[in-house]
Nucleic acid binder design. Sequence first.
DNA 1: CAAATATCCTGATAGC
DNA 2: TGCTATCAGGATATTT
Length: 276
Amino acid sequence: VPEGPEVETVRRTLHPSVVNRRIVKATATGRRSVRRYGEGPVALAAFESDVTGLNITGTQRRGKYLWMTTDRGALVVHLRMSGQVLVCAPTDPGVVHTHIMLDLDDGAQVRFVDPRTFGEMWRTDDPIAELAHVGPDAVEGAADEAWFVDRLRTRRSPVKSVLLDQGFVSGIGNIYSDEICHRSGIRPTRLANTITKPKARLIAANTIDILNEAIALGGSSLRDGQYVDAHGVAGEASANHRVYDQLKAGCGTCGGPIKRQVIGGRSSYFCVACQK
DNA sequence: CAAATATCCTGATAGC
DNA sequence: TGCTATCAGGATATTT
């Protein structure tokens, strides 16, 4: 569920607690969260020794990837489906599915919690090279309108699938791809290479607006309560959803029926009346 | 070569 | 009420 706006909200709420801090101790208990360090239990110790002593200098994000810049490369986090990065006090009660704990030099603790264990954390010397396969963040990519329009219109896939392709632009997930298509008045199934230039420009503009609006509201927390910011606070952007998961409520613009359809293996929602 | 599909995982929910 | 089956989905590997 965490998409660009949610990861950006986590970054913003995490930043003040970690910048200029030193990781004095790392404790890893979830193997899958540190799977880049190997398969067995050795991965836990390998992660711990790799990140202990890092001096954090800042935070950055591209798409759904978040990383802390340090004096020795970057500590990258991907939340995938259900990951949470939480700033805690050491005395805060532990919760199930806490896989990593980072003790900072001011006594605070950063915890990585992830029920579905799809998320992960790892250190890399060069985060830019590591993420070379990831396209520009969607807000920046769409701001380069001519590039965005040309690239979009070369693809023979449903426009929704193109928006979800992190190699094209990054940070758009299942919620915001549906919302971008809706505001643009286009069916998510529409093949990208049949979209007119003016319509593609509209999609670029709406991509910027929808993602920025969601960031301003702290991201979309859903009923499952999985996504919260680094202080455990839920976001309010889901109040803006006009089609995503609105089968019962109807279209947020016209009130008409919402249709659900699987596109590229993802359940998708669109308004039959507003989107052609 | 690009696009579709299977896979990882747990918890919430739908359905009986 | 209580059980089981289904669904959710980001990125990667595999298949088409």
